[in-house]
Amino acid sequence: MTDEAKDQRRQALLSAALNEFFEKGFAATRMDDVAKRAKLSKGTVYLYFESKEAMFIALLESLAEPKIEMFESVMEQVESFEVAIRTLFEIVPVIIRTTEMPRFLKVLIGDSQMFPDIVALYRDAFIERALKLIAGLLTRAHNAGEICVEAPELTARIVVAPVVLSGIWHVVFRQDEASDVDLEALFRIHGDMLIRSLKAEGAK
């Protein structure tokens, strides 16, 4: 089997695992269930992943890691706080609508009490990095005189809160077009509010 074929099989297993986790919860999912959904033998599954936990970690690496690295890259290149916020909130609706991140988040919330170590892994690998990234942006903008913010770490949580809520809404409460949310408009409004409320007096 070629390396490309092996990678395709691995990705098929990860996709099947996420679907099972999302529909049944992490605790209730069995390796047999993942194998059947991926149309592979249980033995084949164990050639790639030794456990459900290993699958989950692989999902974390394939879904969350690239997103946070992209955000870090964007934050390094932006010219100002306003540009950073507007760029960030142009990306967020795309991630919510076109990636598996919201479903991954739902799995975490559903099993958070039963598997605290896995939740902690996600928190450290993604949530804490995202909060640190935003807090750093706020601190730099404050020091540059662009904005006035007293508590960057706490303010960072206000910045990202609508992202988490929108992700949950997208996979839990949205059932049809009538219950959908105009994410572009929502994050444009959120960005405008942040910029206006934090803008330092006299800043351009």
Rank of each mutant, 00 (worst) to 15 (best):
V78T: 10
R103C: 02
Y122D: 09
Q113N: 14
K132S: 14
F115P: 00
P102W: 11
A125Q: 12
T87D: 07
R103L: 04
M70W: 09
R103F: 02
K132Q: 12
I127P: 01
G110R: 12
M101E: 09
T87L: 09
I68V: 11
R129I: 07
T98P: 00
E82F: 02
F104Q: 03
V74N: 10
I109A: 08
K132H: 11
V107L: 05
I68K: 03
P93N: 08
Q113I: 13
L108D: 01
F81Y: 09
Y122I: 06
I96T: 08
S80D: 09
V74C: 10
A125I: 01
F104E: 00
R129L: 10
E76D: 14
E69C: 10
D117N: 13
F104L: 10
T87N: 07
T87Q: 10
I127A: 15
D117I: 09
L108A: 05
E90R: 13
R97N: 15
S112G: 04
L131C: 09
E90G: 13
M70F: 09
E79A: 10
T99Y: 06
V119R: 06
F104K: 03
P116T: 06
V107H: 01
I118V: 08
Q113P: 05
T87R: 12
L105Q: 04
A130G: 11
G110V: 08
I118P: 01
F104R: 04
E100C: 14
I85P: 03
E69P: 02
R86F: 02
D111N: 14
K132F: 10
E72I: 00
